[in-house]
Design a protein around this nucleic acid. Structure first.
Length: 419
RNA sequence: GCGAGCAUAGCCAAGUGGCCUAAGGCGCCUGUCUGUGGCACAGGAGAUCACGGGUUCGAAUCCCGUUGCUCGCCCCA
């Protein structure tokens, strides 16, 4: 056991794993571009109050998962616990309500939560997310869902399910929760211990309990979509008709609620077909009260977050072909100190010309250096020995075909830089 | 916060009381091949057997504790 290890729930992203990240990030960025979303990068830490106000005091995130610390000036700060609240804060701080609405933004950033790590769950994980702030129209809900759906297919995950629900707004939800509570109070004798406390603390969460008896009760429970006020119902129906116009199938699950307080109306998740804990790879919804909660004028918004670690896990599980990181093109092999000097010079000139070059381990025999060329998967070895140095040439060896020719260094440099 | 399992070189591991001065494989290094890689063969480096204590004539192996990791619950991406 080494003296120091990466802190619990964090991982080193090694060179060999980078290809997944580059792949997902580039696909995500391209989708965002096509939908007209601009990138935003917010700080890694925020005023602790932002999350308390935004996410909700009773949520698990705020109650027990935030990394909170006091800095040397006495400010209470929190490592970013969630993606949406910081973007909304930035929206307010930079007066984005004066831009054309909605303001469309995306982010790729780390998120920190103090949880017990397990498969697909970390204390530092990374999310690709988008937010469309300032437009209440249901077509924006459909657009955000379409964006998520498109991104999944672009990276090669097609065996996935979109799950949707509407949990109403400030007008109809209180009534729904009353109905839900009275339903559960009548059957409270059959509830598990956790659910009994949920009944008081967070009745919506009763619906997604995994205990079999509670599940069965959840099936019969009042459904939020049946208790919507007229405005919410109209919104919900239009989201559904836009989705169907785009041919995006979705399963309405009245037990889908979400753990953050700010959600209103549309909520959704995307789940892969393979069963397993922490299977959700994308989750989001509308948050029409959040900006106001953070001190702004009433402003609607909708967005989602998608966990890059979980996406990677699913790419590997489904054996999606992900392009390798490009390996260095040239390895310079030298024999003797004279040639070494030429090798250093050549590498320097190549790099200056924008061509990738690395020097082989000069302490090794030619054979060992060639082995290195093989191990590094370079496409070409450049060999400098006594003869080449004397003649101002370099032996250019194609590692695939094993064909080799001796060319003047200047000619080689010209060709390499040009091609 | 609760529950379960695991811990032997960089990685995968055999070993369940004494022939363990710890097998084997991958990877790494060297040589066979004095200036040419992949294949093959030969050799080499690399392990306080997670840490601490106990039982025993004897512990990688049994017991206790600690730490770490993994998996599940809660919740989430």
């Amino acid at each position: 056991m080494p003296t120091f290890q990466a802190p619990r729930g964090t991982t080193d992203r090694l060179p060999a794993e980078q290809k997944y990240w580059r792949y997902i990030e580039s696909k995500a960025m391209d989708v965002a571009r096509r939908f007209g979303y601009g990138r935003i990068d917010s700080p890694m830490f925020e005023d602790a109050g932002l999350f308390v106000r935004g996410v909700g005091e009773g949520t698990d995130i705020v109650e027990k998962e935030m990394y909170v610390f006091e800095d040397r000036g006495g400010d209470m700060l929190t490592l970013r616990a969630e993606g949406t609240a910081p973007v909304c804060r930035a929206y307010l701080q930079h007066g984005m309500q004066n831009q054309a609405q909605p303001v469309r933004m995306y982010y790729i950033c780390p998120v920190f939560r103090y949880e017990r790590p397990q498969a697909g769950r970390f204390r530092q994980h990374h999310q690709f997310g988008v937010e469309a702030i300032g437009d209440p129209d249901p077509s924006v809900d459909a657009e955000v869902i379409e964006l998520a759906w498109t991104m999944m297919h672009d990276i090669g995950l097609s065996d996935i399910t979109l799950v949707t629900n509407s949990i109403g707004d400030g007008d109809c939800r209180p009534e729904y929760i009353r109905a839900l509570k009275s339903y559960y109070e009548n059957v409270s004798g059959h509830l598990c211990q956790d659910c009994k406390s949920r009944l008081e603390r967070n009745p919506l969460r009763l619906l997604d309990c995994k205990v079999e008896t509670c599940r069965a009760l959840g099936e019969e429970a009042p459904k939020s979509v049946e208790c919507l006020c007229a405005a919410c119902e109209d919104h919900w129906n239009r989201v559904q008709s836009y989705l169907s116009a785009m041919g995006i199938a979705n399963r309405v699950d009245h037990r889908l609620v979400r753990g953050l307080d700010y959600y209103t109306r549309t909520v959704f998740e995307i789940q892969p077909a393979v069963e397993g804990a922490q299977s959700t790879i994308c989750g989001g919804g509308r948050y029409d009260g959040l900006i106001e909660q953070l001190g702004g004028r009433p402003t609607p918004g909708i967005g989602f977050g998608s966990g890059i670690e979980r996406l990677t896990l699913n790419l590997i599980r489904n054996e999606v072909a992900v392009p390798d990181e490009p390996s260095p093109q040239y390895l310079i092999v030298t024999m003797g100190e004279e040639a070494r000097i030429e090798g250093v010079r050549l590498a320097n000139q190549m790099r200056a010309a924008g061509v990738g070059a690395i020097l082989a381990n000069g302490g090794r025999a030619l054979r060992g250096q060639m082995r290195q060329a093989n191990a590094l998967r370079v496409s070409t070895a450049l060999i400098l020995g006594e003869d080449e140095v004397r003649d101002g040439t370099v032996a250019v060896r194609d590692m695939q075909t094993s064909s080799q020719q001796i060319v003047p260094v200047d000619t080689f440099l010209c060709n390499a830089a040009g091609g």
